[in-house]
Every structure is written in C-alpha cells, then in structure tokens.
C-alpha cells in the first residue's frame, strides 16, 4: 500500500529526556489517523519532527517515497504538508482575509512578486473567499484576527492549513479549549475536508477520536503502543491499562 509518511527509528531527545524513541511507522495515504496517548507520550514532538519544526536526533523520515529528513519546514510545507499548532498560531494583527490570502498566495507562482499589484494575481481573491466560506469566517473577513473568539481563531488556523489545498494535514489538538457547539462545528469541518486527503490528528476528546478516526495510533513514553481501528483500540487490553482505563 502506498504510504504518505514513513519513519525509521525516529528519535528525538531533549537534554537527556527522550520524547520520541525509535518510532518506525508507516502511515498509509487517505483517512483520518489520530494519535492518542497520555501526556508526555511524544505526540506533539512526533508532529514537530514530521513537519520540520524540530530536526530528529536520529532516524529518517520519508514522504511519498521521498526522504525529507533534511528538508526545512518551509520546504516540507511546499511539498503539501500543512500543519496547525496546539497553541493558536495565526497572524494576529492582520485581518482574517489577509491571513487566508497569505496562505493561498504561498503556493502561487507570483508569491514573491515585487511589482504586480495583488489584485492582478489571478484567482487569489476567489480562492481566498472560497476558503473563508469553507471555514465559516466569510462574514468576519475584515476583522483583525486577534479580535476573533478563541473558537473562530482555531477555525481560522484550520483555514490557513487547508488554503493551499495540501494532500496532508497535521492538526495538533484542533478542538482544544472549544465550547461544545464549536467542537461540533469543527468536527463537521474536519469531516468535510477529509475526502481526498490524509489527516493526522492529535486529540484528547476520546468521543470525537472514536467517531472520526479511521485508524488510531497510541503513543506511550515516546513509543508506539498499538495501532488499529477504533474498535480494535477500544478492545486492546494494553491500551486500556495505559490510557483508556484512566478515563473510564
């Protein structure tokens, strides 16, 4: 089966502490792959290694048959690996529209053009409007991003992530701090954008995880404890002991 990510003995240490420990994993193309695990299991660090925020201490990473271990974050983003962050990461003092337009422009040929006015860059505006409608922020497009509610800011970040129409989305706790209504809308949004893409998710809300994941990978102390469908994970005794049991 074609994989989208493959890691080989991927390891990251922080001054003596091993956050991700020799993880060898193959993530097939398509579907929603959720990574769960107790605090400190290495989920976010694993995301940071895949997206290029951190270089690995050891090990290698492939993206669609191509080794990306040495690529910088912006080069991986160009390949179509888009990510959101655990702590909302947007352009606070720019408007909602500018935020999304910059994300659309990033994959446009004229992205670094000195002399063409913005309105001459083809369908930039159309695409921006479409993304704004997708994430339900079209009405708020003139607002400064920092003035949005927390839930809207999280959604704006998802907008930034999907604006370049990437094949892979890495969403790091997209539901953190959301109200039940916002959670519901965002889950809808994720399911709407999922077809045709591979979504990697780190999420704590176990009901959501069980509902939207095609496959779940459980991390514990920097290693993969188990991988399987939601039903298999629910039935897995080791997982229950390590993680789910706490919640029951």
């Amino acid at each position: 089966m074609a994989y989208i990510f493959k890691t080989e003995k991927l390891t990251r240490r922080f001054s003596g502490f091993t956050a991700v420990n020799a993880v060898s994993l193959e993530i097939p193309e398509g579907g929603v792959r959720t990574i769960i695990g107790p605090n400190g299991a290495g989920k976010t660090t694993f995301f940071n290694l895949l997206s290029g925020l951190l270089p690995p201490s050891e090990g290698r990473i492939w993206f669609r048959e191509r080794e990306i271990t040495a690529l910088l974050a912006y080069q991986r983003a160009r390949l179509g690996i888009a990510r959101s962050f655990q702590i909302t990461n947007i352009f606070g003092r720019l408007t909602v529209y500018e935020n999304v337009r910059l994300a659309v422009q990033a994959v446009h040929d004229g992205r670094a053009n000195f002399f063409l006015p913005e309105r001459r860059l083809g369908n930039l505006a159309d695409k921006t409007d479409r993304v704004l409608r997708d994430v339900g922020l079209y009405e708020a497009r003139e607002a400064r991003a920092e003035n949005l509610s927390h839930g809207d800011q999280r959604r704006l970040e998802i907008g930034l992530v999907i604006a370049s129409d990437p094949p892979v989305l890495l969403l790091d706790e997209p539901l953190a701090g959301m109200s039940p209504a916002e959670t519901h809308e965002t889950v809808d949004l994720i399911q709407r954008i999922a077809p045709g893409r591979t979504i990697l998710l780190v999420e704590h809300d176990i009901d959501v995880v069980m509902a939207i994941s095609t496959t779940i990978t459980v991390f514990q102390t920097g290693q993969v404890l188990a991988t399987g469908t939601p039903q298999e994970i629910r039935a897995n005794e080791a997982v229950q002991r390590a993680y789910l049991g706490e919640l029951a």
Binding site: S51, L53, L72, A73, Y74, A77, R78, A82, R83, N89, I90, F91, G92, R93, L94, E98, R101, L102, A103, Q105, A106, V107, H108, G110, R111, A112, N113, F114, F115, L116, P117, E118, L121, L160, S164
Partner: peptide, 23 residues
C-alpha cells in the same frame, strides 16, 4: 503593496506561521 510586501508583513507578525505556510 505587492505580494512580496504582504509576505513581509506576515513575517513581521509571525515568522513561524509564515514558514509553515511554505515561505
């Protein structure tokens, strides 16, 4: 006011975000 200029504003506001958009 060119596309280049708006990327500069993005960098001013949030370098990391700009990087992860692919700039």
């Amino acid at each position: 006011n060119s596309p280049f200029g708006s990327v500069l504003h993005a960098i001013r506001e949030n370098k990391q975000r700009a990087r992860f958009l692919g700039y």
